[in-house]
Simulated assay, not measured.
Amino acid sequence: MKRVRCPKCDHYLYFNEKKYESGQSLVFVCDECGKQFRIRLGKSSLKSTRKDEVLSPDNIDTPFGYISIIENVFTFKQLIPLQEGENLIGRRSPGSSVTIPIETGDMSMDRRHTVIHVGKNKESKLVFTIWDNDSMTGTFLGADEILPGDKKIIEPGQVITTGATTFILYTKDEDNQ
């Protein structure tokens, strides 16, 4: 399956590229905004998409760690750096004000789903805290749901699930990848 992004609203549309030949022109109508647009299959001189980038923790320039989005039917693998303070995580959408936009077709992930707070304790060690941002489907730390109003300390290597999207917390000094 391939995906194309609507030029008007950034919504993704998916199609089976194996049904078409290179050089063929396809017309799409966006389900979200109704915009009609066309693409031509084949080699493009445009910059490669994030999906085609070589992902490596060595390319992440942050002292505060990062999250690694696990590839599934809705999303591709992504490595996204964390910032000190609150990191609001949600589904990427035009006009959405999130710190960490995840490119996904997972409609069960809210546009403003969960928050990871990065801070330091008295010994200047990084402390990661997570809570659900009043999402429709909840946030899970491992198999445990984070209940509304609860804040949980998370450790590097722990698995977090938001909707059908799963990611793992890593710090720069750990080689868990």
Rank of each mutant, 00 (worst) to 15 (best):
D10H: 14
Y12T: 08
N16W: 09
K18H: 04
K19V: 01
E21N: 11
S22K: 09
L26I: 02
D31L: 09
E32I: 05
C33L: 13
G34C: 13
G34Q: 10
K35V: 12
F37M: 07
L41V: 06
G42K: 11
G42R: 08
G42W: 10
K47R: 15
T49N: 05
V54I: 11
S56C: 12
D61K: 15
F64T: 03
G65R: 08
Y66H: 15
I67A: 02
I67P: 00
E71C: 09
F74T: 04
F74G: 05
T75G: 14
K77S: 14
L82M: 05
G85N: 09
G85K: 07
L88W: 03
R91T: 05
G95R: 04
S96Q: 10
S96H: 04
S96G: 13
G105V: 03
G105P: 01
M107E: 11
R112P: 02
R112Y: 10
V115N: 00
D134I: 14
D134K: 13
D134T: 11
M136G: 04
G138T: 06
F140R: 07
G142R: 06
E145A: 14
L147N: 09
K151S: 13
I154G: 02
G163K: 04
T166M: 13
T166R: 14
K172Q: 12
N176E: 06
Q177F: 14
